[in-house]
Nucleic acid binder design. Structure first.
Lengths: 198, 198
DNA sequence: TATATTGATGTCAGCGACTGACATTGGGGC
DNA sequence: GCCCCAATGTCAGTCGCTGACATCAATATA
């Protein structure tokens, strides 16, 4: 390979834009095609035009590359819970947060979510990581409720119940036809929980 | 070391009784003393008079040694849920399961649970593993409810809510003074959830 | 009693995830 | 045009984990 070609590839990869995003994309493709276990970090990095060492500078481990957007979701939820009218009951504030999270659960992203969920569902380690992300969401919501004056264990229980609703709604959203919207699923799941616990 | 001494040690370790139990005990001690990350599987095995390879024949990975009893808990829960009177509402059947699980949450085991929980709390990987065990409990309960004729998503939501109650009750039980009993904590947490979701 | 069988264990080699230390590179500020 | 800095690369090493094969001790069987 000529030096010129090497330089061009170098420009598009090693010093190219959005190295982190390229790693996410490469990982998604390889995990989907060959499976999580059968994919090495070195392969992901190579496809992104980087090295294994650089992968681990962007992501704490091989799983984390699939959860790069989770901080964004947490911020959406927390902001909406915190911004609910102070007259709203805790469960209402959480419901408002779940509805606000719908911004990222729109039609354009449904296909991407499906791909990602099928990768996660196929691997126990990835399911573990997803669970701790959910738990971290619940903790963040509980903290926000406490800051609104909700005492424990009410804050924690409300947050956990809210996340249970989130999980059910999300699973249904991923499976559902394209017409079915996020907010209807959230409201429906919450209503069912109310009936069941009553 | 003489051949006789080597033979005696051999009798007490390599071919001694309860190799799996010895590995659990050794792991618990080392994780508590030096931390999970700073303990190697080779060290655990050596303390139990075995080799690293044998550790991985008894446990799928380094974390699993802390969750050897989780099948037992699951069976307790499932049996009690399944054995509830068919007249009981789903949430009542789950409550009965939680109360039945109390046989393993008695005074003698509280100190052990405390030790174990402090190890788990100190490490993210172990918290992940605990979460997936909880999720597996929830799945088992949901399956049992379905077998009782409870449709989805009611089965799943009830199971998830029940596990939320379990977690809150368990955390309080571990932290609580010795007089505080499991059943009161379960009933109290469930009552609070009912109020909050209403 | 001697031998075959069997299940638990040991030994060894090797892969891949992950890390620390240090070198290199390319772009932006002076 | 030079220097600095952040991103990246290189290298060596540790540890979790696995497959293949050997060994050992108890039990069954001849």
């Amino acid at each position: 390979m000529s030096a010129a070609v090497i330089a061009m590839i170098g420009r598009m990869t090693r010093w190219g834009p959005d190295a982190k995003g390229r790693l996410v994309q490469s990982a998604l493709e390889l995990y989907a095609k060959r499976g999580y276990d059968q994919t090495t970090v070195a392969e992901i990095a190579e496809r992104a035009g980087l090295t294994e060492r650089t992968f681990f500078r962007h992501f704490a481990d091989k799983k984390e590359v699939l959860f790069a957007g989770s901080n964004n979701l947490r911020d959406l939820l927390v902001t909406a819970v915190a911004g609910s009218p102070s007259s709203a009951a805790p469960i209402e504030a959480v419901a408002a947060g779940l509805l606000a999270a719908g911004v990222v659960f729109n039609e354009e992203r449904r296909a991407h979510s499906r791909r990602r969920q099928s990768i996660i569902a196929a691997n126990a380690e990835l399911r573990e990581r997803e669970l701790i992300k959910m738990a971290s969401l619940a903790s963040a919501i509980a903290d926000t409720l406490r800051r609104r004056g909700v005492p424990d264990p009410a804050a924690r229980l409300t947050a956990e119940a809210g996340i249970a609703v989130f999980r059910v709604a999300f699973d249904r959203w991923v499976d559902a036809d394209n017409e079915v919207g996020w907010s209807d699923l959230v409201r429906g799941s919450l209503a069912e929980l109310k009936v069941l616990v009553a």
